[in-house]
């Protein structure tokens, strides 16, 4: 198509063709991936908590270009239509921003959101002590800001971090990671470009300290031995991720305590002075 210069008189701008995802021929060379990682290495992980002030708990997780925000509201009273229940209910809703994914129309996006929500609910439910929350509902909202691969795993990790930040009683943190089988090699935490060329993929969510698996989803085609190896790789990845999640929570709590101590030391008028005190430092 000849690129016609946009003039003031033209009624419609010329449509821009969709850029397909780049499909490099070789993803792994000499045990190093395209982005410089080793086969069993995570992307650069950044975790943060309490990013949404109105929520009971919230978290942000960024694995390079995969960016997810999670918020937990509640517990609140359950809707009447669900009737009485002596255990609580986890209501998980997930959405992708309209610019999160390259491919797929509205309908495909809605289907993906539904699938992600049910996958997250299964991953998180075993970790929450719902017996302590009769007749109640916990709302977990997850927003995928940018989908750069393994978004379900990153979303589960962020959601669990948000639950912990909300002070919900948990049996353990849920850490989740994906593994892709790309031409016989197992890649931990695949990027979108790697996942697009996988022969088999799996998502594993686990509570590493309890040693329990909360969600497993496999797709594609796995050789008998490779599946086992991949599971073990993913379990190791989850344990590693959990350590990072724990550090994030501890650091955030330590920072808050320090803040409180500083506020107390000022002896000022009390409430509302937190932000100002920080500014004076």
């Amino acid at each position: 198509m000849a690129a016609a210069p946009a003039t003031a008189g033209s009624s419609k701008p010329a449509s821009v063709p969709l850029q397909p995802l780049p499909r490099p021929a070789t993803l792994v060379a000499d045990g190093t991936r395209l982005d410089g990682r080793g086969l069993e290495e995570f992307r650069t992980v950044f975790l943060d908590t309490r990013v949404i002030s109105r929520a009971a708990g919230s978290a942000y997780a960024e694995f390079n270009s995969t960016k997810v925000m999670a918020a937990v509201y509640g517990p609140r009273q359950g809707e009447r239509r669900f009737g009485f229940s002596d255990t609580g209910r986890l209501n998980v809703e997930a959405c992708f921003t309209s610019f999160a994914r390259r491919e797929g129309g509205r309908q495909a996006q809605r289907a993906a959101e539904k699938e992600l929500a049910s996958c997250l609910a299964a991953a998180l439910e075993p970790s929450v002590d719902l017996g302590k929350l009769p007749k109640s509902v916990l709302d977990v909202y997850v927003m995928v800001l940018e989908a750069g691969g393994s978004e379900a795993a990153v979303a589960a990790t962020a959601a669990s971090l948000a639950l912990a930040d909300a002070g919900v009683e948990l049996f353990d943190l849920v850490a989740a990671c994906s593994v892709s089988d790309v031409s016989g090699q197992l890649l931990l935490d695949p990027s979108a470009a790697e996942a697009a060329q996988q022969r088999g993929g799996l998502l594993l969510a686990a509570m590493p300290s309890l040693g329990e698996v909360t969600q497993l989803q496999m797709s594609g085609d796995w050789a008998p031995g490779a599946a086992r190896d991949a599971l073990e790789l993913a379990l190791g990845g989850c344990a590693q991720l959990r350590a990072g999640m724990r550090d994030t929570l501890l650091a955030a709590e330590a920072a808050r305590q320090q803040q409180r101590r500083r506020d107390g030391g000022d002896g000022g008028g009390g409430g509302g002075g937190g932000g100002a005190a920080a500014m004076q430092e």
Binding site: A122, E125, P126, S127, G200, L202, A206, M207, L210, G211, E212, V213, T214, Q215, L216, Q217, M218, S219, G220, D221, W222, A223, P224, A227, L235
Partner: peptide
């Protein structure tokens, strides 16, 4: 050879 796998039920599975 394994294809897809899914989980149902609300409990965890020991490793």
């Amino acid at each position: 050879r394994l294809g897809a796998a899914t989980k149902t039920g609300a409990g965890g599975i020991p490793q």
